[in-house]
């Protein structure tokens, strides 16, 4: 899954003078208040941190409240979904019009009917709602499935992802893993390469579609279609 990175950050935390006896506590509290919120500075959502205070010396700000700036070196785990990244999440609700997914347990995502490629059709099987692939019998998406999907947009305030299942390399994670391996070595190597690298996913994404011929046809068709639809919508 993409959209996660560890950043080394040099930070200055300004601590209120009343907290001068419990500096480390105050720093953790300050950083804690950033958790699960999108921060422009970090360009992502802070999920975890590991702090090292660089020196005991802090710069005191002149003013009515002499806040003092403590310099830190911190390792930050950030979640930064960007359009066209591939994310993974668990399906929590599924209906004809949409699939609701939760990513990493806190970020919600929705994939609407228009963003589900036509390969998948909505069915009710044994009282359970599923999106089943018409091309591959085994490829199904239902509540509880972990799926891989493409990011269309990201609402930074409530951490809401709008996603898409249009590209061929999206869908049920288990099925994709199993079948991508079966296809070709090149495929596997590109996949590994893609996983090892964090960025530049667009190029690799293209490779995947070129390598898997069946997929490439399919996706191009879908992408075109979705583009057309999008233009219609707007």
């Amino acid at each position: 899954m993409e959209g996660l990175k560890v950043s080394d950050a040099n930070l200055v935390v300004y601590v209120h003078p009343s907290k001068s006896k419990k500096v480390s506590e105050a720093i953790l509290r300050e950083l804690g208040s950033l958790l699960f919120k999108f921060s422009e500075t970090f360009d992502g959502v802070l999920l975890a941190y590991d702090v090292n205070i660089l020196s005991e010396v802090a710069k005191i700000l002149p003013g009515i409240h002499p806040y003092f700036g403590v310099r830190l070196k911190a390792k930050l785990l950030l979640f930064y979904p960007k359009p066209d990244m591939i994310l993974e999440g668990k399906v929590v609700k599924l209906g004809q019009q949409s699939i609701h997914v939760i990513v990493l347990g806190f970020s919600s995502a929705i994939i609407t009917e228009e963003d589900i490629r036509e390969e998948f059709i909505y069915k009710v099987k044994h009282g359970q709602e599923v999106f089943a692939s018409t091309s591959y019998k085994q490829h199904k998406i239902k509540v509880g499935t972990i799926i891989r999907f493409l990011v269309k947009s990201f609402d930074e305030e409530i951490l809401h992802v709008s996603g898409s299942l249009v590209p061929a390399n999206t869908g049920c994670t288990d099925w994709l893993d199993k079948n991508l391996e079966d296809w070709s070595h090149t495929n596997r190597s590109t996949k590994k390469q893609r996983e090892s690298e964090g960025r530049g996913e667009m190029e690799e994404h293209d490779k995947v579609t070129v390598d898997g011929k069946t997929f490439s046809l399919n996706t191009e068709h879908q992408i075109k279609k979705s583009k057309r639809r999008r233009s219609e919508d707007s």
Binding site: F36, V92, I102, G105, S107, L159
Partner: peptide, 10 residues
């Protein structure tokens, strides 16, 4: 809250 895990905070 099940669909939007951060909704309870709001």
């Amino acid at each position: 809250a099940d669909l939007v895990p951060l909704a309870p905070l709001k």
